[in-house]
Each structure stands twice: as C-alpha cells, then as structure tokens.
Amino acid sequence: MKIVVIGGTGLIGSKLVAGLDGQGHEVVAASPSSGVDTLTGAGLAEVLDGASVVVDVSNSPSFEDAAVLEFFRTSTRNLLDAEAAAGVGHHVALSVVGTGRWPESGYFRAKAAQEEIIRTAGIPFSIVRATQFFEFVGSIAGVGTVGNEVRLSPVLVQPMAGADVAAALGRVAVGAPLDGVVEIAGPEVFRLDDFVRDGLAARHDPREVVADPDAGYFGAPLEERTLVPGDGALLGTTGFADWLKEN
C-alpha cells in the first residue's frame, strides 16, 4: 500500500515514515524540500499518483492568526482536491485536542476550519487529535518566560511522546477510515506549570516556573480542562519521566 505523508520530514512525520516503512508499506515523505508544496499545489499530482492513503502532519510556518488560518485552509483544500483527482481512499489528518472548544486561540480556530474542510470534502477520512508533545516543553517555557521566571497557567495537560503520536497515526493510517475523530494523549495528567517545571529541572535550567492563572497559553486564556481529552482517548505508553531520561 502506498502511503504519502505530507510533512514527512518533520518531528512526527519522520517517525511515522520510519514506522510505516518498517511494516513493509511503500511510504513517501512529502515536503517542500522534496518538491511538494501544499500551499501552491506544486508536486501534489505526481506524489499522489497511486497512493491509497495520505497522512497530513504538516504545520504552518507562522502562528500569526491570519497566516495560520490561511495555511490550513489553502493547503488542506489543495491537498484534498489532488487526492480526489488521484483516487485516494483515506485522508488522515493530525489535529489538536481542544479543537472546537477554544475559539480564543487563533491556531485552534484554524485547526477547526481545517477539520470542517476535511469533513465536507467527500473523501473517507480520519482526524487524530493529539495533546501537546513532550518535545514542546522547551517552547512552552519560552513563551511564558519573563526575565528569569516562566509564568504559566496551572491548567491540566496530558502530553505525550512524539513517538507515541506517530505510532497512533500509523495504526489509523493502515486501518479503515473512521469518518470521525479519535483523541490520543499521554498516560499521565499534569498541571501545565508542573509539566514545564519538571522538564526544565531535567535540563538543569535555572528559570523559576510560577503558576499564574492569568498567564493564559500562547497568549490566549483557557479553561482548566480545555487541553485534556474526553473519555475514550487512546493513551500512549511513554511516561514523561522515562522520556526525560532518554532525551
């Protein structure tokens, strides 16, 4: 089975490609560096020729509200149009837990728009909503840093290892289309400030993490459980402490 991974050279995409290749599938990692640009449509017809499944793990190069919305709208429409022309039978998209219930976030509004385009395109689909990745602990700290303090809202998070995200995507990709949404998350629930505090401590980072209910998250306020999945989420197996030891 030919599977094309859009964004196949990135953090999640590269792990997904390796996993599917190890299972014996014909896997193609597609990205601008390989001549495939979903924003312009360049290279899509060629790379999708003969593909049964497309997995889209691409992300916007800019998180500014208008830019990220334009990216997901344009790239998703171009990709789905090319899939329809190529006869692709399953579109898999990586999304984010909390999509649809956090309109204050421009990024989450853009992901909601992407999901709606997928639902109405007419191609069998599966949307995989993941929680935050362990690998993002440094960037989360960076956004909240003021001087030597990291100010973060003490909301709940259930982050997961990138390898577990890729493994879940791989299982969905080789299965029947869900025509719906599945949530995936890590095995442990943290307060956001504790998650980052543990991550910085493991790196001997001297910054002090302060729980601040007014801090928001990437510039937007959110409720305590906005970023955690509902009942029935599929859970990864990698704990944060084990991941920190290995990384």
Results as ranks from 00 to 15, higher is better:
residue 85 A to W: 01
residue 86 A to R: 07
residue 87 G to W: 11
residue 87 G to D: 12
residue 88 V to E: 00
residue 88 V to S: 03
residue 88 V to C: 00
residue 88 V to Y: 00
residue 89 G to A: 13
residue 90 H to Y: 13
residue 92 V to S: 12
residue 94 L to A: 05
residue 94 L to Q: 09
residue 96 V to G: 12
residue 96 V to Q: 14
residue 96 V to N: 13
residue 97 V to F: 08
residue 97 V to P: 07
residue 99 T to H: 09
residue 99 T to Y: 08
residue 102 W to C: 05
residue 102 W to E: 06
residue 103 P to Y: 02
residue 103 P to K: 00
residue 106 G to F: 07
residue 108 F to H: 04
residue 108 F to Y: 14
residue 109 R to I: 10
residue 110 A to W: 08
residue 112 A to V: 06
residue 114 Q to A: 11
residue 114 Q to H: 02
residue 115 E to I: 12
residue 115 E to Q: 11
residue 116 E to K: 14
residue 116 E to H: 10
residue 116 E to N: 10
residue 117 I to H: 15
residue 117 I to A: 15
residue 118 I to E: 09
residue 121 A to N: 12
residue 121 A to M: 05
residue 124 P to D: 08
residue 125 F to D: 00
residue 125 F to K: 05
residue 125 F to Y: 15
residue 125 F to G: 01
residue 126 S to L: 03
residue 126 S to K: 00
residue 126 S to G: 08
residue 126 S to I: 05
residue 128 V to M: 11
residue 129 R to P: 02
residue 129 R to C: 03
residue 129 R to I: 01
residue 129 R to A: 02
residue 130 A to Q: 10
residue 133 F to Q: 01
residue 135 E to Q: 14
residue 135 E to D: 06
residue 136 F to I: 04
residue 136 F to Y: 14
residue 137 V to H: 14
residue 141 A to C: 01
residue 141 A to G: 13
residue 142 G to L: 10
residue 143 V to G: 09
residue 143 V to I: 13
residue 145 T to L: 12
residue 146 V to H: 11
residue 147 G to E: 09
residue 147 G to H: 05
residue 149 E to N: 05
residue 150 V to R: 01
residue 151 R to F: 14
residue 153 S to M: 08
residue 154 P to R: 00
residue 154 P to I: 03
residue 155 V to C: 01
residue 157 V to Y: 02
residue 158 Q to M: 10
residue 160 M to F: 06
residue 161 A to Q: 07
residue 162 G to K: 07
residue 164 D to W: 02
residue 164 D to S: 04
residue 166 A to N: 06
residue 166 A to M: 02
residue 167 A to S: 15
residue 167 A to V: 10
residue 167 A to C: 09
residue 168 A to G: 10
residue 169 L to D: 06
residue 169 L to C: 07
residue 169 L to W: 06
residue 169 L to H: 11
residue 169 L to Q: 11
residue 170 G to N: 11
residue 171 R to K: 15
residue 171 R to W: 08
residue 172 V to T: 11
residue 174 V to W: 09
residue 174 V to A: 12
residue 176 A to H: 03
residue 178 L to W: 09
residue 179 D to T: 12
residue 179 D to H: 13
residue 180 G to M: 04
residue 180 G to Y: 07
residue 181 V to H: 04
